[in-house]
């Protein structure tokens, strides 16, 4: 019955064995074992490479902006949705905003590029009507990170709000009734009941998201990226893909990948430790 473990050994542990090429000068003919050892050569190069610091900076900045804007967005969205009296309207909003979650980033990025186009994009059409200016969004590197964060919110706000909607639904209704008897108005009820009740869920998800702080959504960034935007938009995955697989620098990019994996693992362990501590061991991955 443990036949499934074979898949883990091949596809998860197999690549881990391949990591040793980060300490070698890999060439395809000699294979993993036959390639000559190179020691820490690739790691030395990495810490002197301005490109490496560029991708770290981009990854960290995108994650930081996501933490500041994309993380709270679904929380606020769920609270707003909860305040809507009409159930049918709420249902409609949910149906509409869950939809993009199921559409691939290829399609979403394709639509986005088309809508942001300076010649016949709808966004520039509205922008021109309002301000008289048009903006070449996809060829200006200063906009790229905002586009990543905003398009991420656009695609996932509805979906990510589900968990908060569930947390709100679990609140004991008698709390609200008691508050109404005490004369609390709507804003006071939101501030003193709804928000504190979902705060544990929010903080756990926040800490968990710190575990992926060096990660990025390859599907999203790759499809929106173009060479003009490398300066602000290149992240680990896109760089490793381009330099590793299209320029054949296998060993060097494996070293970059290893660096990311190790730091990423430390971050996950810290995140889990914190969330266990915060919830007294009730919530956490292990």
């Amino acid at each position: 019955m443990l036949s499934a473990l074979v898949f883990y050994i091949i596809f998860c542990y197999g690549p881990m064995y391949g990591i040793i090429i980060a300490f070698k000068d890999f060439n395809v003919k000699a294979g993993i074992l036959g390639s000559p050892w190179a020691g820490f050569k690739h790691f030395k190069r990495l810490f002197l490479d301005p490109e490496f610091f560029k991708i770290i900076r981009n990854t960290l900045l995108i994650n930081l902006y996501q933490l500041l804007f994309a993380f709270p967005a679904p929380v606020v969205f769920a609270i707003m949705l909860n305040e809507i009296g009409s159930k049918r309207y709420r249902r409609f909003i949910q149906t509409a905003t869950y939809l993009p979650h199921f559409i691939s980033w290829v399609v979403m990025a394709g639509l986005l590029i088309y809508f942001l186009s300076p010649t016949n994009g709808i966004v520039n059409y509205v922008l021109k009507a309002l301000t008289g200016k048009t903006i070449y969004f996809m060829s200006k590197k200063e906009y790229f990170r905002s586009i990543i964060v905003i398009s991420g919110i656009w695609k996932e706000i509805g979906w990510n709000s589900i968990i908060y909607m569930a947390a709100i639904a679990a609140i004991d209704q008698s709390q609200y009734e008691a508050a109404i008897c005490d004369g609390a108005n709507r804003f006071q009820r939101m501030w003193h009941i709804t928000i504190p009740s979902i705060l544990p869920t929010v903080s756990v998800l926040l800490i968990m998201s710190l575990g992926s702080f060096l990660g990025s959504n390859f599907d999203q960034v790759f499809n929106l990226l173009n060479p003009v935007l490398y300066e602000t938009g290149d992240v680990f995955d896109t760089y490793v893909y381009r330099v590793g697989l299209t320029q054949f620098q296998y060993s060097y990019t494996t070293a970059i990948g290893l660096f990311r994996s190790v730091v990423g693992m430390i971050l996950i362990v810290i995140a889990n430790f914190l969330s266990n501590k915060l919830s007294n061991g009730e919530v956490g991955m292990w």
Partner: peptide, 19 residues
């Protein structure tokens, strides 16, 4: 633990490609 470890750490893009 063996399965769990794969959630924490992976070989990365290039070693997977070679495999």
């Amino acid at each position: 633990s063996m399965i769990f470890f794969t959630m924490l750490f992976g070989g990365g893009m290039i070693p997977t490609f070679i495999l």
